[in-house]
Computed example of a mutant assay.
Amino acid sequence: MFDPVCPSTLLPLRFADKWAGMVIRCLEHGPRRFSELRVTLRSVSAQSLTTSLKNLQRDGLVERTERTGPVRHVEYALTPLGRSMLPVIAALCAWSDAHWEELLDAREAAATA
């Protein structure tokens, strides 16, 4: 999914925003800091990532937690609702993978038309 040539970028259906699915997948294995998300999602601008995180928080899919202590930082984690999106995203990724060639052919045909 994080490979530049991943079929998920061809997905005709999107929810929340362009990067939401990738953010949710990044948080699949536990909380992450903004800077950790930026490393994994290197093609996403800081502004777009911030917008995605805010939209996902608004929709109840991600929670933001401020950690205090010697080093203060913010972590993002999936809520139970956000975690419920993981099988949906996996199904969409599988569909994209199964129809990769058809999607590429359609886009190429549209570009030359």
Rank of each mutant, 00 (worst) to 15 (best):
D59F: 08
D59Y: 09
G60A: 03
G60W: 03
G60R: 03
G60C: 07
L61K: 10
L61P: 06
L61H: 12
L61W: 10
L61M: 14
L61N: 08
V62C: 05
V62T: 03
E63K: 13
R64Y: 00
R64I: 00
R64S: 06
T65K: 15
T65H: 15
T65R: 15
E66D: 14
R67E: 11
R67G: 06
T68D: 09
T68W: 07
T68Q: 10
G69Q: 10
G69R: 11
G69S: 12
G69K: 11
G69I: 13
G69W: 12
G69F: 13
P70G: 15
V71C: 12
V71G: 11
R72D: 00
R72F: 03
R72W: 02
H73Y: 15
H73F: 14
H73G: 11
H73L: 14
V74G: 07
V74S: 05
V74L: 09
E75H: 07
Y76K: 07
Y76A: 09
A77D: 04
A77Y: 01
L78F: 09
L78I: 05
L78G: 01
T79C: 03
T79V: 03
T79W: 02
P80F: 05
P80A: 05
L81P: 02
L81V: 00
L81N: 06
L81R: 09
G82S: 06
G82P: 11
G82Q: 06
G82A: 03
G82E: 05
R83G: 08
R83N: 10
R83S: 11
R83C: 04
R83W: 03
R83K: 12
S84G: 08
S84Y: 03
S84T: 07
M85Y: 14
M85C: 14
M85P: 12
L86W: 10
L86S: 12
L86R: 08
L86M: 13
P87R: 09
P87W: 12
P87K: 10
P87V: 15
P87D: 10
V88N: 04
V88E: 05
I89H: 02
I89R: 02
I89E: 05
A90N: 07
A90P: 01
A90D: 14
A91R: 07
L92T: 01
L92H: 02
C93M: 01
C93A: 05
C93I: 04
C93T: 01
A94S: 07
A94V: 06
W95N: 04
W95S: 04
W95K: 07
W95H: 14
S96K: 07
S96F: 08
S96N: 12
S96H: 08
S96I: 04
D97E: 12
D97R: 06
D97F: 06
D97N: 09
D97K: 06
A98P: 06
A98K: 08
A98S: 15
H99M: 14
H99I: 12
H99N: 15
W100N: 00
W100I: 00
E101T: 07
E101Q: 09
E101R: 08
E102W: 04
E102D: 15
E102H: 09
L103V: 01
L103W: 07
L104F: 14
L104N: 14
L104P: 11
L104Q: 15
L104A: 14
L104I: 15
D105G: 04
D105K: 08
A106M: 00
A106Q: 00
A106W: 00
A106N: 00
A106I: 00
R107W: 01
E108I: 07
E108G: 03
A109P: 05
A110R: 06
A110M: 05
A110C: 04
A110V: 01
A110W: 05
